[in-house]
Design a binder for these strands. Structure first.
Length: 706
DNA sequence: GCTAACTAGAGCAGGTGCTTTGCAC
DNA sequence: CCTGCTCTAGTTAGC
């Protein structure tokens, strides 16, 4: 099907032509025939890079040109920014905004945009606020909709869809999914036409590696020329042929270990495989950007030889450098954990799945799902660069070869199974529905939840009675916590309940926070940190000892049992104490075995949960605790003692280190800086002329306006 | 015959990722 | 539950 045959706005067609799109891929054509441009609900279940997101973009732009609004929901913040860039290709045809937890085009002004890109949770949160512009939404795109099967985030997706259905919007749903077992069922639930296709722009060969050979699914096999461990051989082999490799492993430490081994092999290879000038430039940049000297050096060392590792321990900036370096072809091999499996699109000629098992704290070793294997394998083959993509699983014994072939390569992808009717998901979304005004009685809650996939999938004859009793139990629990009130069949959210829903807190966590705050005997920093950190999905540090001083402080303020959980939390408290007492980052990384990327996660989570706890304290009338929780939270966000907060919060270009320098040299307030000369500031360590000028200007402006 | 260097074996630690607030007018 | 690292003891090579 040719682009020009489509009944689309001419301006849209010419943009597509400019982008080099002439004719549609087969699955795209099928989606058009299914009515994706006529406002029909469509579920697209096709391979990565088969062009499904192009269709969703075009449908969104088309809606915009017709005066409607489109919402585009993605699972990751990184994907939201990637989407924003894609939409920028449509120039001034559409105004596109982004709304995610940490970057907002001002929420109250979202109505000014034609297309709004959001993360799932952010969209759910927006829907709880019910802004007026919702009524102009005509297209809702849900990217990676197979997340419906995720134990937690799937429930968020269901809740979003149930809310939109409840609002009665005449909006078109477009679901984009990886291949799943029960696509038909999901499409039926959505009331969508299903487009399934395994067509790919670059063909894919899948195989299993053992003993120097790749055994392909078509019965053929080939020898791998390079020697060494499986991962090393497979990577070097493809690089020697001018391709790139993406290696997936199951632990952070093995990403670094394998990257080093591969880097050694590449350096020792008889012919030159990399452009040293380029790799060394990139290595230098990584060293500069990385906030940890130790990890920065470790990564830079392999990058200089054209190899990188990639995991959530790395800061986002560093990860972006690695991804970009790989895309540009400077880096030939990336060894990664699942960070790269689901995130931004980063194809390679050969994908190596080094471990098909992963550790689970309950079960022990566990095989990864077929869906996850297919997602990784789908990364093989760069359009335009590779004639064929290759996905290879590493077998550890001869008889695993056949097993892996059946289980993964020829295996059936799992079904998507809803989790929304299970606790704690159900009560979270019950509170969300009541707090957001989507239901005001048990009956209405039953109606609301009968729009979910969970209800659609329950096969019991008396399912609505079962649903009702589950909902009643959830309401009971929420009432016990003081978030809901019952009056016969009617259900109301209390002020507290509404806030918990708006803050997007797990009700159980909120209840615990409130209990703790009420029972505080005194307010001290350690105790505030302790309370916030008790949220179950807060990560815990792995190393570090139980600091006596911290334990004492916490116990002075709170009656808690000194069990194992307590110790884990206290160790994490000690880490954050070190951070807000301005310990050197590398010292923290080493002492507590946290990586730079982890620290960012702690800070982000604390930003959200610390402020939420403060707000809860305010609602229950604990003003003093509210104020002090806010201070502690601000200190965690910036990693400083209280005395530096003024400088660090008001001046751009001043972080914890520079603020400390300024303070120690006697510039303790914005006022002090406004009075200083450029020369004085520029002579301080860590400051240059340009920076000095900028902060003095900022300071003077602040002093004037106050 | 001594030292240094390497190897084998036992014992033990450790083992992914990700999202979520509200601020005026 | 298994891998991979560390530590130790024992062996071997070299002078």
């Amino acid at each position: 099907m040719e682009i020009s045959e489509l009944s689309l706005d001419e301006r849209l067609i010419s943009v597509l032509k400019e982008r080099g799109v002439r004719r549609l891929f087969p699955p795209q054509a099928e989606a058009v025939r299914a009515g994706i441009f006529e406002g029909r609900h469509v579920l697209l279940c096709t391979a990565t890079a088969s062009g499904k997101s192009l269709l969703a973009e075009v449908a969104s732009v088309k809606t915009a040109l017709e005066g409607g609004m489109a919402l585009y929901a993605v699972p990751l913040k990184a994907l939201a920014y990637e989407k924003l860039v894609h939409f920028s290709h449509y120039g001034n045809l559409v105004k596109v905004g982004v709304s995610t937890g940490d970057f907002d085009s001002d929420d109250r002004r979202l109505y000014e945009y034609d297309v709004v890109v959001v993360t799932y949770e952010k969209l759910d949160s927006l829907l709880r606020h019910r802004p007026g512009w919702l009524s102009s939404v005509k297209t809702v795109v849900i990217d990676e909709i197979h997340y419906l099967g995720d134990p937690k985030r799937g429930a968020v997706l269901e809740s979003i869809i149930a809310k939109i259905k409840h609002l009665g919007l005449r909006a078109q749903f477009i679901g984009l999914s990886a291949t799943v077992g029960n696509a038909t069922e999901v499409a039926d639930w959505l009331g969508a036409r299903l487009v399934v296709s395994s067509w790919r722009p670059v063909p894919l060969r899948e195989g299993v590696y053992y003993g120097g050979r790749i055994y392909f699914s078509d019965g053929s096999h080939r020898a791998v020329s390079a020697s060494g461990d499986a991962e090393v051989a497979l990577a070097v082999d493809v690089v020697a042929e001018g391709g790139q490799a993406l290696v997936f492993t199951n632990s952070r430490s093995s990403t670094a270990r394998l990257a080093k081994a591969i880097a050694r092999a590449i350096a020792a290879y008889p012919t030159k495989l990399i452009n040293v000038a380029e790799t060394e430039a990139l290595a230098e940049e990584i060293l500069r950007v990385s906030s940890s000297k130790i990890i920065g050096r470790e990564l830079a060392e392999v990058v200089a030889r054209g190899v990188a590792f990639h995991n959530a321990g790395l800061e986002l900036e560093v990860r972006r450098l690695v991804e970009d370096g790989f895309r540009r072809g400077v880096i030939k091999v990336v060894v990664s954990t699942t960070t790269l499996a689901a995130g931004v699109n980063l194809p390679a000629r050969r994908v190596v799945i080094a471990d098909y098992e992963r550790f689970d704290p309950v079960v022990g070793r566990e095989e990864i799902p077929v869906l996850e294997y297919k997602q990784m394998a789908g990364r093989a083959g760069r359009p335009g660069l590779d004639a064929v993509g290759e996905a290879v699983i590493v077998a550890r014994s001869k008889n695993e070869v056949g097993y892996l072939m059946e289980r993964y390569i020829k295996g059936q992808v799992e079904n998507i199974k809803s989790h929304i009717l299970l606790e704690p998901n159900l009560r979270t979304h019950v509170l969300g529905a009541v707090g957001g005004g989507y239901a005001g009685s048990i009956d209405e809650l039953v109606e609301f939840f009968s729009n979910t996939l969970g209800y659609f999938q329950s096969k019991i004859a008396v399912k609505s009675a079962v649903l009702r009793s589950k909902i009643a139990a959830a309401v009971e629990k929420l009432a016990e916590w003081g978030f809901l009130e019952r009056d016969g069949d009617y259900v109301y959210a209390t002020e507290l309940g509404r806030q918990v829903a708006r803050l997007y807190l797990d009700p159980e966590t909120a209840a615990r926070y409130i209990d703790f705050i009420k029972s505080l005997k005194e307010g001290n920093t350690a105790a505030y940190l302790y309370i916030v950190l008790t949220a179950p999905d807060f990560p815990r540090v792995r190393r570090g000892r139980v600091d006596k001083r911290v334990v004492e402080e916490v116990l002075k303020a709170l009656d808690v049992e000194e069990d194992e959980e307590f110790e884990d939390v206290v160790k994490t408290v000690a880490m954050l104490m070190a951070w807000i007492e301005e310990a050197d980052e590398d010292v923290i990384f080493e002492k507590f075995e946290v990586a730079p990327g982890d620290l960012r996660v702690y800070i982000d989570l604390f930003d959200w949960l610390g402020n939420a706890a403060a707000k809860l304290a305010g609602i229950i009338g604990e003003e003093e605790h509210r104020r002090r929780l806010e201070v502690v939270t601000a200190r965690v966000i910036y990693g400083v003692r209280e005395e530096l907060l003024e400088l660090v919060t008001t001046l751009r270009g001043v972080g914890r280190v520079r603020a400390r320098t300024l303070y120690n040299f006697g510039y303790r307030t914005v006022r002090d800086i406004a009075r200083a000369s450029i020369r004085e500031i520029a002579s301080l360590p860590g400051f240059g002329e340009k920076l000095a000028k900028s902060i003095i200007e900022q300071a003077r402006q602040l002093v004037e306006t106050s």
